[in-house]
């Protein structure tokens, strides 16, 4: 009896060890490339560091510089937030509404429409199509079309013109943003228990909108939170699109985001301490948005009457 207890104990210890070991590769990589960058930024943000000489402690100077001496900072933060507010909630609502609209179709139609909406984000490099469609010369598709219909006489430099470039980037980003959150929404909608709808109908739910607000959305709250997280991640990591289509820096920082500013300060000017402080600022904004949206989602299904 004692021996078998001993064996049982040995076995669980052995199993725990194996469990720790199989977790280890992921955790080591995750720590090195996920957690460590954040910890390193927090520490480095108090230093002046150019990657050659050793870091010099300067206290809060990087943060003071950010808020008082950096000419570009407020413009870039403004642009980042403007993008985030349009692309984040915009993409989020679009991903939900489109998923909701195709939810009732029979399976083959639904799969086809899912494919149609998902394909722009699936083919990640398709943004070059927009570069060619909206190219600045008069042969480019959009300019050509507008000229031949007489709307404009001169070709427009779409991506350099501060009147158009911001909204164009927003449109292209929204075009590409029916991604993981869109798929999650479709799956979530499919899994809402239909008995709830029947019960709701008995309880006096009269319209589609009430059904959406009181039954559908509350039953998929966890999925709504997942897709919010995905959209926040996308909205604040925007940069490649701007860099490819407009270039950095843009006129009046019209489309420059924090991600681009950080990469310029860090990897082009090697002001790692300052780049770290800017990164910490970005991490904090993202966390704030995450919990603000979490709080908003708690209102889902609550009565306004």
């Amino acid at each position: 009896m004692k021996k078998s207890l001993n064996n049982g104990l040995k076995r669980s210890i052995k199993e725990s060890t194996v469990y720790y070991l199989i977790m280890a590769p992921f955790m080591v990589l995750f720590f090195t490339f996920g957690i460590l960058p954040i910890l390193a930024s927090m520490v480095l943000s108090f230093f002046d560091y150019d990657m050659v000489s050793s870091p010099i402690f300067i206290g809060f100077d990087n943060y003071i510089r950010m808020f008082t001496r950096d000419q570009a900072f407020f413009g870039v933060v403004g642009t980042t937030l403007k993008f985030a507010v349009l692309v984040g909630p915009g993409g989020y609502i679009l991903a939900f509404i489109l998923a909701w609209m195709i939810n009732e179709f029979p399976r083959p139609v639904r799969v086809f429409l899912t494919f149609i909406f998902y394909v722009p984000s699936l083919v990640g490099n398709a943004l070059y199509i927009w570069q060619i469609m909206f190219s600045g010369d008069s042969y480019a598709y959009i300019n050509n079309l507008l000229i031949s219909f007489g709307f404009i006489t001169e070709p427009i430099q779409w991506f350099q013109n501060t009147q158009y470039n911001f909204i164009l980037i927003v449109i292209i980003q929204l075009w590409m943003s029916m991604g993981m959150s869109f798929l999650a929404n479709i799956a979530g909608l499919q899994n809402v228990n239909t008995e709830l709808y029947e019960a709701g109908a008995i309880d006096g739910i009269k319209t589609r909108w009430h059904e959406l607000w009181y039954i559908t959305m509350p039953s998929m709250k966890t999925i709504l939170l997942f897709s919010a997280v995905m959209q926040i991640q996308t909205a604040f990591s925007m940069g490649t699109l701007q860099q490819t289509l407009v270039g950095y820096p843009s006129v009046n920082n019209s489309v420059d985001t924090l991600v681009l500013l950080i990469s310029d300060v860090g990897t082009a000017r090697y002001e790692m301490g300052y780049a770290a402080a800017l990164s910490v600022f970005l991490f904090v904004i993202i966390i704030i948005f995450r919990y603000a949206i979490g709080a908003l989602l708690n209102l889902v299904g609550k009565s306004d009457r």
């Binding site: 390193a40 991640q233 990591s237 490649t240 770290a276 991490f283």
Partner: peptide, 24 residues
């Protein structure tokens, strides 16, 4: 706890972690 941290870290991707990752 580890999984909770992983779940929170889904907010950040290679673009937002860019420069500190470069350092590493």
């Amino acid at each position: 706890v580890c999984f909770g941290i992983i779940q929170t870290m889904m907010l950040y991707n290679a673009a937002t972690l860019g420069v500190p990752q470069y350092l590493i």
